[in-house]
Computed example of a mutant assay.
Amino acid sequence: MKECMSDEMKRKISEHPCYSPEAQHKFGRLHLAVAPSCNIQCNYCDRKFDCVNESRPGVTSEVLSPTDALAKTAQILREHPYIRVVGIAGPGDPLDNDATFETFRLIRENFPDITLCISTNGLLLPDRFDELAESKVETLTVTLNAIDPDIQKEIISMIYYNGKKYSGREAAEILIQNQLEGIKKAVAAGMTVKINTVLIPGINDKHIIEIAKKMNETGVYIMNVMPLINQAAFADIVPPTDAERKAVQDACAPYVKQMKHCRQCRSDAYGLIGKDLSIEKKSCGKTSVSELNELKTVSVKKGGKN
């Protein structure tokens, strides 16, 4: 895959801290938390906490409007010029929020040299792919935890798609179909694609190598096997050890390049991967947790985009 990239794309990947292990020490990223709505309930996801001690996906201290996100970007890029990537990764799913595309438009207009990045569950990837391409997003991450519906149905409790709630195997089938279709579209369009896979002992740990083989077929650039953070419905599952995670990564490595330096960042993280400045700038108790939960509840009830 890398050999097929343009020289410009190779340069951008070399400066993307999530896609290049060397870049993590020199270049930073900025996550803009403009996307509170989500269309999937994953059994390992719990977004009700926010504190300086919480550093994980789905956590943010505030939800920004697109104009506030632009102002924040301008300030942070001025203070930290080593940041090369601006991404949207939540706290919900970016493709379930129209604010994502308005934010990208503003960032692209004002900072044309910045690499735009998005992290999504992929449910709406085929439906909103044209908008994503028009936004000139160059790097895409899809959380793909299974390609077998019988395994996927154990990981998600429900999805909302086209205004309807689905659960069980039907939900799993829709999600997997859309994820794979969207990934293929992205690769064909020249986007550089990363897969995030949450390693869940006893559920998908023996299956992840099959995901890697499938991603090899689709042309995905890199795969990130992430250890489960045991919370929500999966609070009683013991997370994988470092050795167990490494064994899965080693088994997948012949098929897809492995990312091994992920820190499972917050939705408002910025700076170097190993030095999240969003935590240093905040203190506990500043978050409007009720507001985030209300937004999430509204999204679940409506089953649509915000």
Rank of each mutant, 00 (worst) to 15 (best):
M1K: 13
M1A: 15
K2W: 12
E3S: 15
C4T: 15
K10D: 01
K10I: 09
P17W: 07
P17T: 10
P17K: 02
Y19H: 08
S20E: 03
S20P: 06
P21S: 06
Q24W: 11
F27Q: 05
L30T: 01
L32E: 04
L32Q: 11
V34H: 02
A35F: 01
N39Y: 03
Q41H: 14
C42R: 02
C42H: 00
C45S: 02
K48D: 12
D50Y: 05
V52M: 03
N53H: 15
N53T: 15
E54L: 07
S55C: 09
R56I: 09
P57Q: 00
G58V: 04
V59F: 02
T60E: 04
L64Q: 04
P66D: 11
A69G: 12
L70F: 05
L70A: 07
K72E: 03
K72V: 06
Q75H: 10
I76T: 02
E79F: 08
V85T: 11
V86A: 08
G87I: 02
G90T: 04
P94Y: 06
T100D: 08
T100N: 01
F101M: 10
E102Y: 04
E109I: 09
E109Y: 11
D113M: 08
I114E: 04
L116E: 01
G122R: 03
L123G: 04
L125N: 09
T141K: 00
T143D: 07
T143S: 10
D148N: 14
K153S: 14
E154G: 02
E154W: 01
I155M: 11
I156G: 03
I156C: 01
N162R: 15
N162T: 10
G163A: 03
G163V: 05
G163S: 03
K164F: 12
Y166I: 07
Y166P: 00
S167C: 12
R169H: 14
R169A: 11
E170T: 13
A171V: 05
E173A: 07
I176G: 03
N178G: 02
Q179V: 07
L180T: 08
E181W: 07
E181T: 15
A186Q: 05
A186Y: 08
A188K: 14
A188R: 13
G190K: 14
K194N: 02
N196D: 05
I200S: 09
I203M: 02
D205H: 12
I211H: 00
I211P: 06
A212I: 04
K213I: 10
E217L: 13
G219A: 10
G219K: 04
G219T: 09
M223P: 04
P227N: 08
P227R: 11
A233Q: 02
A233L: 08
F234N: 01
D236V: 13
P239T: 02
E244P: 00
E244D: 09
R245E: 13
K246V: 03
V248D: 01
C252S: 06
V256A: 04
K257S: 01
Q258R: 04
M259V: 05
M259F: 00
C265H: 01
R266N: 06
R266Y: 06
A269Y: 06
K275M: 13
S278F: 05
E280L: 14
K281I: 07
K281E: 15
S283V: 15
S283L: 14
C284D: 15
K286M: 13
T287C: 13
S288C: 09
E294R: 10
L295C: 01
T297P: 00
T297N: 11
V300C: 06
K302P: 06
K305Y: 09
N306E: 14
N306F: 14
